[in-house]
């Protein structure tokens, strides 16, 4: 068995909402718990996808892997060593983790040329001007853009082109892990397809590991090896892609899957629609965090926090995971009884 490249162990991240002196004095500081006790590991060469609604803590978890946030408690290990915030990491670790953000235009400095943008990480590692020139030229061609783009500025690029530049910058220092935070969510289907293809090519060629954040399950199904489903800062289910899509063992995953619109109008499926919005992460529900919206929840769910249950190849955090996995139709049945 290979050693995991990233190990996340019981990580908690809380952001203060009100931690002023008076709040502390009165003992009513409030915090947003963005990530609440998540443990997972990423094997070298695999694509692990993180999915969930907005506000489920996907990006915060990814930011702790890249070092943009430091965890409140728990540890993030890269290559077996505990890594902290980006400023405290050594240069090798920094170079080994690349990042691509959601909004391609927002993540490129509008005052720099494309050439300067891609060369920036190289400059930080002390490459000479000549080496940088050569490397930037090979990188821009690697992401299928012509060298004519190098003197341009980000505002002259389309969304897809800007995302290619961001990918070129992320692979500049030959990283081993790339954290992709919704890299294709802002793009049209035809452009999205090209970027997904490019990412798969690069993974094969450069032997990359991806942590892929998305809310579009169609793309995730295509690219990911394993999928971790998050809700309100906690893991709901982790499973290999095929297993997750065919034998769901968590009601939340089921609702996510049923929400995907199908392109085939003749195949209208039974839909599970959740009521209301995701609860506030300031006062998370007791017991299972999903019980307030779960169609199967009972009193037990409201009081007891579910433990991890292993069902086949998947791990599920639901009291009724086993029963749910046995009887896929159950949730649809409950819905139609109402």
């Amino acid at each position: 068995m290979t050693k995991p490249i990233v190990e996340i162990d019981d990580v908690v991240k809380r952001f203060p909402v009100d931690d002023s002196f008076f709040a502390k004095l009165l003992g009513n500081e409030t915090y947003v718990t963005a990530v609440d006790g998540v443990s997972l590991s990423i094997e070298p060469g695999e694509t692990l996808a993180l999915v969930g609604e907005s506000g489920s803590g996907k990006s915060t978890l990814a930011n702790m892997v890249t070092g943009l946030h430091s965890p409140t408690s728990g540890t993030v290990k890269f290559d077996g060593e505990v890594v902290g915030e980006a400023t405290s990491r050594n240069k090798e670790t920094l170079a080994a983790i690349g990042m691509v953000f959601q909004n391609p235009r927002g993540s490129l400095d509008s005052r720099l040329t494309i050439k300067q943008i891609i060369a920036e990480p190289l400059k930080a590692r002390g490459w000479s001007a000549a080496e940088r020139e050569q490397k930037v030229e090979s990188l821009i061609e690697r992401v299928n853009l012509s060298q004519a783009y190098l003197p341009r500025h980000p505002h002259e690029l389309s969304g897809g082109e800007a995302q290619r530049v961001a990918i070129a910058r992320a692979i500049a220092l030959n990283p081993r892990l790339i954290v992709l935070d919704e890299p294709v969510s802002a793009l049209d289907v035809s452009v999205q397809a090209k970027i997904v293809n490019l990412l798969m090519e690069l993974q094969d060629e450069l032997n990359l590991t991806y942590l892929f954040i998305a809310h579009d399950l169609n793309v995730v199904e295509h690219i990911a090896d394993r999928i971790a489903v998050m809700y309100l800062g906690q893991l709901m289910e982790i499973a290999p892609t095929e297993v997750l899509f065919t034998e769901t063992s968590h009601p939340y995953t089921e609702t996510l899957l049923s929400a995907i619109p199908s392109v085939d109008p003749t195949k209208q499926k039974e839909r599970v629609i959740l009521d209301g919005d995701i609860p506030s992460p300031i006062n998370t529900p007791s017991g299972c965090v999903f019980h307030t919206r779960c169609p199967l929840a009972d009193e037990h769910c409201a009081t007891q926090t579910p433990a991890a249950e292993h069902i086949g190849e998947s791990t599920s955090w639901c009291h009724y995971a086993a029963e749910f996995a046995d009887d896929e139709k159950r949730i649809a049945g409950v819905m139609s009884d109402d």
Binding site: Q192, A193, V196, M200, E201, V219, E221, V263, P265
Partner: peptide, 30 residues
């Protein structure tokens, strides 16, 4: 239109959807 497109553009657009491709295979592009 969606099951039996009669225009190459509609057909290409449908082809780009990740659902229409096998897992792990490159997606169709325009």
């Amino acid at each position: 239109v969606l099951t039996n497109p009669k225009h190459p553009y509609t057909e290409s657009l449908l082809g780009c959807m990740p659902q229409t491709c096998a897992r792990g295979e490159p997606l169709n592009v325009i």
